[in-house]
Write a protein that binds this DNA or RNA. Sequence first.
RNA 1: CGGGACGUAGCGCAGCUUGGUAGCGCACUACCUUGGGGUGGUAGGGGUCGCAGGUUCAAAUCCUGUCGUUCCGACCA
Length: 578
Amino acid sequence: MKMSRLFLETLRDYPSDAEVISHKLLVRAGYIKKLANGIYNYLPLMWRVLKKIENIVREEMDKAGAQEILMPFLQPKELWEQSGRWEVYGKELLRLKDRHNKEMCLGPTHEEIVTALAGEAIRSYKQLPVNLYQIQSKFRDEIRPRFGLLRGREFIMKDAYSFDKDEEGMQKSYKAMAEAYTKFFKRCGLETKPVQSDSGAIGGNISHEYMVITQTDSGEDDVFYCDNCDYAANSNHAVSVLNETNIEGEWSQYEKISTPDIKTIEELAKFLHINSSVICKCLVYIADKEPVLVLIRGDKIVEETKLMNALEAKEIRTASEAEIKELMESHGFKAKPGFIGPKGFDDIKIIADKTVQDLKNFVMAINENDVHVVGANFGTDVKLPVKICDVRLVEAGEKCPQCGQPLKVTRGIEVGNIFQLGTKYSKAMNSTYTDENGKEVPFVMGCYGIGISRTAAAAVERHHDEYGIKWPISIAPYHVIIVPVNVQDEKQMEIAQNIYNRLNSSGIEVLIDDRDERAGVKFKDADLIGIPLRITVGKTVQDGFVELKIRETGEISKLTPDEAVSFVSKTVQNALNN
RNA sequence: CGGGACGUAGCGCAGCUUGGUAGCGCACUACCUUGGGGUGGUAGGGGUCGCAGGUUCAAAUCCUGUCGUUCCGACCA
């Protein structure tokens, strides 16, 4: 491809609205252009990258026994009502009506469609297992799209769905997908860590997310992991064994003490000269519009996804000051935030984190301003709530639940996930097959997603430097770029063209920068757009040499055109065979 | 949806405080120059200053509303 004909505009500056490096680089290097918030045009270079990633997915999915299909992007409300998700899915599901006033939605995922499809098409256990996948644009009306391709509203996803006759079969399908995923990401030049996670809106029991560890802040998830064993989990799912700490107060008597103007746990601990771990913290949340009290040890933080699951709520947030005031007044209290305690709220839900149950002689608030009690105990001074769950955010340094070594934390980008769905959808939608005994039974399902466009962005996050992108060869838009330094020099052009032709005809994807630009401009652009190999044809042709630069390492070598051609061919072959 | 910021040429920005008829760099067009890391020059083209209303002799500038974008939180591939 001739650069002079390529639909490409590289920018001298980074766009002002971009925050993370992949977004900045993809816009500046002319890969994407924003159409609307969270919605992008994929320009020729980007589209080539995406197609490469898609094809690697296809190869790995096909190898794992899955079959590609394509399901509709626009979906009827009825199926979503059958699964129960028309109600549950919230505002990320973009709903619209057609000309007959029929309600539809843009597909954010395809469990409903594929479950219905399998139910109709699969009759007998003899046909199982089946694994169907597709690669398609999805639409999720995200609350806050950002970070370019890392969190768009419209994005390209590979989604696969497995159908098995029993739990054991599903486990096998799940494992096959897990293996395919690891291979896939590796081929894209990405090291991923499979981590346990919450299964969110998709549902199901066991799930893993595939995280690209970023080290930088561009990842949106915190991942807790253990260096000693294979434990790794998203913060919304991670558990830990707490380090030893003081959980018994020194007071032997239950008594009220004056704590004027204390607003936070830190202030309280300081005021009483105690560790915050002997305080029972009480927080007010609003879960699906209902107030809920949450008790947790003073030095710990509530993990809201865990809390949401524990409450079986759809939506959760901390209460505003006005809501707290209203709650207090409706129960005859005047306490300000800071003095809220669990006593006197028999009619509302109170949930306790596991950390509070072992507290002894602890400190808590009792809905009286400027007063706390010390030496409190569950059972005698206050009832322990019926519901005790783990709703605590794990912190680095706490012990691994598997081996007891200290956990570490890092940021990660979720590029894929796999879920064991079980019969959640097949039961709800009455999607069944006939088993060996002639009985109609629901499929046992799994589902498996990979964010194609997000994978591309994650690759940029992991492979770039101050000059631009450094694509891994496997997903680079072109393998090599030939730069004739001076297009008006006939000899340079002749040799460049010759190398171009030879590489091209041997299946190498090659770009030739035939623009009448200065060398500096071409070099900067080549670095920016991140082509892995560069052949510079310049003055050295007089001595029969060209120059080969490896983008990844910056290594430069002087070769004859023949050597350059064979080096490039070999390097690309090797990279693709891996 | 809550809290902050910003909308001026394709991109990055100045001008706004103290109203007076719109500017800089890059990009673009033409010619010259240069030719191994964003060459230098000359001449050009391009903007109803997000939109609507108001104040005023006069609004990019002040006021109100609205739309959009963006950052911080809950959602997620």
